[in-house]
Design a binder for these strands. Structure first.
Length: 836
DNA sequence: TTAGGGTTAG
């Protein structure tokens, strides 16, 4: 805290230097030679000395003075040059070609591109034709200001005036096309050059590196060093290093660094920054730190590279530490440094430090830079200071897509999805980040179908292409919906569009396919993944566990350990769940006992929950209860619920009542426990107790959540709610249900938790959501296709046997996912062996 | 004469 304080509350040294303008020397020093003049005052003095020598109208002298003035490249020196240029000497304009060239170059290199281009135009109007020097300056101005049309016109002029064979002109054209994103045209210029120098190669390599074509940049670099007619210099190497950073390719990066050292290319400040950035992006943080320490904290750009990478990795304290170090070494943070600082505060949701940063920004005049405004808006939104965020937003004259995205993301962060959506709708321009933000928000809010809907409308937008982030959200939505057709289409989409299948996206896809009841696809994706981390293994273990293949799940778990990965708490949940579903009591116990002893992972309540579940399902109720009592932490309602549901399976009414009592104390709002308890009583025929439980629910204003089932037909999901007959196809669904009933299905009336007559019970059972979905699936899909149903609650045993019968009679595979696991039902048999 | 890294939002 103390360390960070000095970043945010500037030290006395910084305060003293702030706000004090540089004092310019006005002492009467002797007249310097022109090449030594470094300030406008010195130039003006030189100009006065010309007058004393009677040379104030001498074209040659004035031309040299203008050239020097332009070389300095400050706003003041450029306007002084322009003043001289506009004045007349001996009744004649000073506008020689050389002067035009000097000024155009000066304007272009200081970023005053409009001035440069308007002077280019005036030059021609004045009847002075551009030459081989004018064209590169003009094109440089076009490249910088993305004046694409002007650049193309200049190209025409170059051809017309026969300058197209000049290497410098060709290099400038190449650079211009690369900068405005026309890489193919740039490459055409490059390929057709009869001779190339280091600038030609560097411009082409850099063009690729800057346009997400880093691979091409690296390839071209290796081609360059093979060609041997030209050697790379530090300009080239900075580009190549940055390309390796973008590729996150450490191996090539190290080769490139070795090349730099071997060939004695100067490692300047810019190169060190590029190298540090490369090592950070490749996650070689220690190497980056070594370089950083070697070259010191006095280098502003280096500090910025380090800080921004720390921020990207979420290492906010380290980022602020670098900024702190800079200040201590007397290096003043610039606006780039402040972007990292503000972003750190935003990530930490630290409004106090964020405000300090804002203060620093204001004191140093950075507040008019769009990027700083965007970062501040993001910070204030994330810190829940929307008013301040909007004040900055309203004052911005140049709101970009990033500005709008910050607002949308801020709303999402605050859980205001509605406001995010409204903002998203009205924003003038949307990019992939905007779409990903809103899609991610919908998925987060469990609005899966809406998320997919938005994704579909995104695809009709020109210039917006889904990326890995989009696909992760959509995969998650598909998984929750259990929509297999959609999931398959998505996988195809990823392949077709060349979206990189990295380990994160891969893991999401494994999860998606396993949730959609397609463990084979899940495993084939898992097999194809390189660099599998613990999350990837967890997804595969879960896939096997959910599909009832407990043995394979445990094999995978062991393979993971053999490969030397350190298991975390999450993967143990997967492994224990597998044991529980497969009834592997002994293996479950062994894994549970190994957690702390072998792997140093202390079991959390969730792991105890898995064990209670495992023991309970295996009928070891007493042992499960003892385990609960031995827990080092207070058992939560979920654990008691596991016990309760085991009691239901075993018909242990007393222990069920005890567990239910505990749950009602710990989580009185938990409806499931009441339902389970009344279930236990109903199975035992204790209708009075059932009635008591129902009354107690009613008194507390609790209602059993309605059962709902989804069924996917030709890529569209249909939702059914228990007892709801509003579906337009209801008459046909009813006919289907009747047909199955007449085929010999004997309703298991014990599933009806109400004391009504048997006919009524039969009717209620026939309107269970999974039955409605099943019947609809049978009548609306082609013969032989698999019917996939996702239910929000547990599948009832009557529906389970109903599904088994239907699978046999109609020769259909039925995949039923409930809130706990999958049932793969085929030819009258279920993968769960009627034990779930 | 021409060429260079890092820069906020998911």
């Amino acid at each position: 805290m103390a360390m960070l304080g000095s970043v945010l509350l500037p030290s006395p040294m910084v305060l003293a230097s702030e706000g004090i303008k540089k004092v310019t020397t006005t002492s009467s020093s002797p007249i310097r030679p022109l090449k030594n003049c470094k300030t406008v005052d010195q130039l003006k003095m030189f100009h006065r000395s010309l007058a004393k020598q009677g040379l104030e109208n001498d074209v040659s002298s004035i031309t040299k003075l203008v050239a020097r003035s332009c070389e300095l490249g400050t706003r003041e020196s450029l306007s002084f040059a322009r003043e001289l240029f506009d004045s007349k000497g001996n009744g004649e304009s000073y506008g020689s070609r050389f002067m035009y060239n000097s000024l155009i170059r000066g304007y272009a290199s200081s970023g005053l591109c409009e001035e440069a281009l308007s002077l280019f135009l005036r030059m021609m109007v004045d009847g002075i034709s551009p030459d081989k020097y004018t064209f590169p300056f003009g094109l440089s101005a076009c490249a910088k200001s993305r004046a694409n049309r002007d650049g193309i016109q200049i190209h025409g002029l170059i051809v017309k005036m026969d300058y197209a064979k000049d290497m410098f002109v060709q290099n400038s054209l190449l650079h211009f096309y690369a900068e405005c994103g026309e890489l193919d045209l740039a490459r055409k210029v490059f390929d057709e050059m009869p001779q190339r120098n280091v600038v030609s190669w560097t411009s082409m390599i850099c063009g690729y590196a800057r346009r997400d074509l880093a691979k091409d940049a690296v390839d071209l670099f290796f081609e360059m060093i093979r060609s041997e007619d030209v050697r790379p210099n530090s300009f080239t190497m900075v580009c190549v290093v940055s390309a390796c950073a973008k590729l996150e390719d450490l191996e090539t990066g190290e080769k490139v660094y070795a090349f730099i050292r071997d060939s004695g290319i100067e490692v300047n400040d810019l190169m060190v920054s590029a190298l540090v950035d490369m090592y950070m992006k490749c996650s070689a943080i220690d190497t980056a730190k070594q370089l950083f320490e070697q070259y010191g904290a006095r280098n502003l750009d280096l500090c910025n590279a380090m800080a921004s990478n720390y921020v990207r990795k979420g290492l906010t304290k380290e980022a602020l530490g670098v900024l702190n170090l800079m200040m201590e070494s007397g290096v003043r943070p610039d606006r780039i440094s402040m972007l990292s600082a503000i972003s750190s505060c935003s990530q930490m949701r630290n409004i106090l430090w964020g405000k300090s940063c804002h203060g620093f920004v204001l004191r140093n005049g950075f507040q008019n830079w769009d990027n700083i405004c965007n970062a501040l808006i993001d910070m204030y939104m994330k810190c829940n200071r929307q008013d301040t965020a909007f004040k900055i937003f309203d004052r911005m004259s140049n709101k970009t897509v990033v500005t709008w995205n910050s607002i949308v993301a801020g709303y999402v962060d605050n859980g205001e999805v509605e406001a995010a959506w409204e903002t998203f709708k009205i924003m003038p321009e949307k990019n992939i980040v905007s779409w990903n933000t809103i899609i991610g928000a919908l998925v987060q809010e469990s609005m899966f179908e809406e998320a997919i809907e938005v994704f579909r409308s995104m695809q009709s937008q020109e210039g917006v292409n889904a990326d890995g982030v989009t696909m992760m959200s959509i995969a998650s939505a598909c998984g929750h919906l259990g929509a297999l057709d959609l999931a398959k289409w998505m996988y195809y989409y990823i392949e077709k569009n060349g979206i990189e299948l990295d380990v994160r996206l891969g893991t999401t896809l494994v999860d998606m396919f396993s949730r959609c009841g397609d463990p084979d696809s899940a495993m084939s994706i898992f097999d194809s993944l390189t660099n599998r981390d613990v999350s990837a293994w967890t997804a595969a273990i879960r896939a096997m566990a959910m599909s009832g293949n407990a043995k394979r799940a445990i094999e995978l778990f062991n393979e993971m350990i053999e490969q030397g990965l350190q298991p975390d708490g999450v993967v143990f949940v997967g492994a224990l769940t597998a044991c529980s579903h497969g009834g592997l009591v002994q293996q479950g116990k062994e894994i549970f006992n190994s957690m702390e002893k072998v792997h140093g992972v202390s079991p959390q309540d969730v792991h105890y929950g898995c064990m209670v579940d495992l023991l309970g399902r295996a009928g070891l109720l007493e042992e499960a209860l003892q385990l609960i009592k031995s827990m080092p932490m207070e058992p939560n309602d979920v654990i008691w619920n596991s016990l309760l549901s085991a009691c239901r399976g075993q018909g242990n009414v007393e222990m069920a009542a005890y567990a239910a009592e505990r749950i009602q104390v710990l989580a009185p709002e938990r409806t499931g426990s009441y339902v389970l308890l009344s279930n236990v009583y109903a199975s035992a025929g204790r209708w009075n107790d059932v009635a008591k439980v129902r009354l107690s629910m009613k008194e507390k204003g609790l209602r059993k959540p309605p059962g709902t089932s989804l069924v996917e037909i030709r890529g569209k999901t249909h939702e059914f709610t228990s007892g709801d007959e509003s579906h337009p196809e209801m008459p046909r669904i009813e006919a289907m249900l009747d047909e199955i009933s007449h085929l010999g299905h004997v309703p298991d009336l014990g599933n009806v938790l109400m004391d009504v007559d048997d006919q009524e019970k039969r009717f209620m059972l026939s309107r269970h959501s999974e039955k409605l979905a099943m019947a609809f699936g049978l009548i609306s899909s082609k013969k032989g296709t698999t019917i996939r149903i996702v239910k929000n609650l547990r599948v009832c045993s009557d529906c389970h046997s109903f599904a088994k019968l239907a699978s046999k009679v109609y020769n259909r595979e039925i995949v039923l996912r409930d809130n706990n696991r999958f049932h793969f039902i085929s030819q009258g048999k279920c993968s769960c062996n009627d034990f779930w």
